[in-house]
Structures are given as structure tokens and as C-alpha cells.
């Protein structure tokens, strides 16, 4: 059972990603990509990593894709101006509906199964506690390096934003 769900989810992820890179309308691509992230999250859950699954949804679907959406909305691409306006409307949306429906079905099946006790993919079940322990003990150095990089990035962004803002404000006035 779990194996079938694994393959279905895998197909969903691949197809959704393929759709995402072939759409001409960026907002539609984002929706397909979010769909694919969901499939990935379910895969993580299936493989016994609920924490990673949740983060996949929170960080990728909930934050990064939202920022993408934000930028695209800032680009003034109104839905009326899209290039493929003459294209068949319902046909274009059929894939995402099918993928979404399949995803929901898989999710329901998954929730009925116990990820740790299922037969075919009985891997290791990472509870949040184990996960945190491994992350902050074995990979402590890596975590520190990454967080320092993020700090540098944040400081850099802050600096760039500040200097640019001042100059431009001065230049216009």
C-alpha cells in the first residue's frame, strides 16, 4: 500500500514540476510548484519525517512561494494581459485539479496508515525530538556555519537597502 502511495506521490511531484516550468503565466507556475511541494511534503511524511514535511509546507509553500508571488504581483502582470489568453481555459486547469484531487486522496490514505508501522517502507521514524537532537549534536558545526551565512546575508541586505534608500531619496529631492 505504502509503495503505491509513494509512486503516486512521486508522479504527482514530477508532473506538477514539469507543468510549473512549462506554464507561460508565472502565477500558474507557482500554483503547480506549490502542488509539487505538497507532494514532496507527503513523501517526507511517508518516509517517517513529519517534521521535515511540516517545514516543507511552512517554509517552501508558505513563505518562499509567497514571496515569489509577491514579486510577480509587483511586476504588473495582470491576468488579462497574459499571452495565452485564447487558449482553452478549462483544459488548462484540468491538470492542476486532477493533481490536487490525487494529492488529497493520498493524504487521506496516508493519515489512515501509520507511517512507522507500514509494511513496505518501514524506515526510521524521526520524532521532532530525535530530529532536533541529531541536528544540534552531530551537525552543530554545519548549523552554525549556515546560520552565520544567513546572518551575513541579513546584514548585507540591511546595508544595501539602507544605503540605496538614502541615496535615492536624496537624488529625487
Amino acid at each position: 500500500m505504502a509503495t503505491y502511495i509513494f509512486y503516486i506521490l512521486g508522479i504527482i511531484a514530477v508532473v506538477a514540476t514539469a507543468m510549473a516550468i512549462t506554464r507561460r503565466n508565472p502565477v500558474h507556475s507557482i500554483i503547480y510548484l506549490v502542488n509539487s511541494f505538497f507532494a514532496l511534503a507527503m513523501l517526507f511524511y511517508l518516509l517517517g519525517a513529519p517534521l521535515v514535511a511540516a517545514w516543507e509546507v511552512i517554509i517552501y509553500a508558505g513563505a518562499i512561494m509567497v514571496l515569489f508571488l509577491f514579486i510577480i504581483m509587483m511586476l504588473e502582470l495582470s491576468p488579462g494581459e497574459r499571452a495565452d489568453r485564447q487558449g482553452p481555459g478549462p483544459l488548462q486547469w484540468l491538470p492542476v485539479l486532477l493533481l490536487g484531487a490525487a494529492l488529497i486522496g493520498c493524504t487521506l490514505l496516508l493519515l489512515k496508515l501509520d507511517p512507522a508501522g507500514s509494511q513496505n517502507i518501514p524506515t526510521w521514524y524521526a520524532s521532532p525530538r530525535d530530529f532536533g537532537y541529531v541536528l544540534f549534536h552531530e551537525y552543530a558545526l554545519a548549523i552554525e556555519i549556515v546560520s552565520f551565512q544567513l546572518l551575513f546575508a541579513a546584514v548585507g541586505a540591511f546595508y544595501v537597502g539602507r544605503a540605496g534608500g538614502r541615496k535615492e531619496a536624496g537624488g529625487i529631492k
Partner: peptide, 19 residues
């Protein structure tokens, strides 16, 4: 067992409907 994260995930998805 990750109820808090479930809540955070869904509330971050709530943005999509509006946007």
C-alpha cells in the same frame, strides 16, 4: 504529534486564498 507545525503551515497557506 506536530500539531503546532500543522497550525503554522495552514496559517501560512491562508495567504494564498487572499492573494
Amino acid at each position: 504529534n506536530i500539531g503546532v507545525l500543522f497550525f503554522l503551515g495552514l496559517s501560512s497557506l491562508a495567504v494564498y486564498g487572499m492573494t
